[in-house]
Design a protein around this nucleic acid. Structure first.
Lengths: 172, 172
DNA sequence: CGTACGGTAGACAGATCTGTCTGGTATCGT
DNA sequence: ACGATACCAGACAGATCTGTCTACCGTACG
């Protein structure tokens, strides 16, 4: 049920997918849906929070390596993801584009993920002995956003090489 | 009328704004609207194409400077824009997030803008004598996307310094 | 003067949206 | 065996969506 919503929200956008589509696709009655989620917005929040959790788990599963290699591995995952069929950009950025209110639950969930991501990069850079981990992490976050966007809107085949190059330049 | 739509689309998202809202805000009859635009999607396309045109004009108005300085000026404009109240990210990226179909007229208009932007950066880098203008322009496009996003989702006050720093690192 | 045109307001159709509610069914643990 | 619980299908309310249509008004041009 959340899986169905996830697929539809990601592929078509949150506002473009109605509850009726979700329950029909998930072969579930409407009452059942509203027993599990008080509203559609809460479903969207659950969707975002699940993506957040999946991202954290994916990072936790990364093979042991030096901090610098881990940074490259994280960014390599972006390029890999963008090459998968059905890639449609970053679920967090796409959702944020549809939720203008910065204090809405959905946006708060997005912010939460971004804070984690930024802190993670900062720690890795600090562990790597980088001279300016805070600023560099900020630039890497920006770079990651751009790569996630570009993987959808531009040619995703060149993205792996471009990613390596870009991260190298940013790390110095 | 297009101005009204532009404000609403940008501030709240395309799907979140109905025709009724637009015509009420623009103090225009519904029939008048449909005399000027055959459909809402065509209005969205006109909105995107106008933003494209405005972007090109803004670049054309940049003061004379070296190619490298022009690149910095272009990116400085992003940081400036993000500090304005009501900043809500990049209209092209936001629209693309709501139009999944890559061959829809809206997405084609977005692609058009991106192609122009990429070619512009490539020319400037080539004129600057950069050793790898094509790859570097691609990275700058990605960086620009990230900055436009981050200006909305993160703290926009640090963005100017971060932008200068990031562009410097990418240019080498 | 008259007519063609572009504007207005708003009803209307048909679809879709979120969310509630009714009534029937199946599957549990006790 | 029985009650609680969760499920089902689907009607329903009330709002909103896009897009069309009618009927009227004012103006400008021949």
């Amino acid at each position: 049920m959340l899986d169905t919503a996830t697929n539809l929200f990601y592929a078509e956008g949150v506002h473009a997918v109605g509850i009726d589509r979700i329950i029909a696709d998930a072969r579930v009655a409407k009452a059942t849906f509203y027993n599990h989620f008080p509203s559609k917005d809460e479903l969207v929040r659950a969707y975002i929070e699940e993506q957040d959790q999946l991202g954290r788990e994916a990072v936790a599963r990364l093979p042991d390596a030096s901090p610098r290699e881990k940074v490259f591995a994280i960014f390599h995952r972006i390029a890999e993801a963008a090459r998968q069929p059905g890639y449609r950009g970053c679920p967090f950025l796409n959702a944020a584009a549809e939720y203008p209110d910065p204090v809405s639950p959905v946006r708060k969930a997005v912010d939460n993920h971004r804070r984690w991501n930024r802190a993670l990069l900062r720690e890795l850079l600090a562990a790597d002995g980088h001279p300016d981990p805070a600023r560099t992490a900020d630039i890497l976050v920006v770079l990651g956003d751009g790569l996630l966007v570009s993987g959808d809107l531009d040619d995703a085949t060149k993205l792996a090489a471009l990613t390596r190059d870009a991260v190298t330049r940013v790390l110095g």
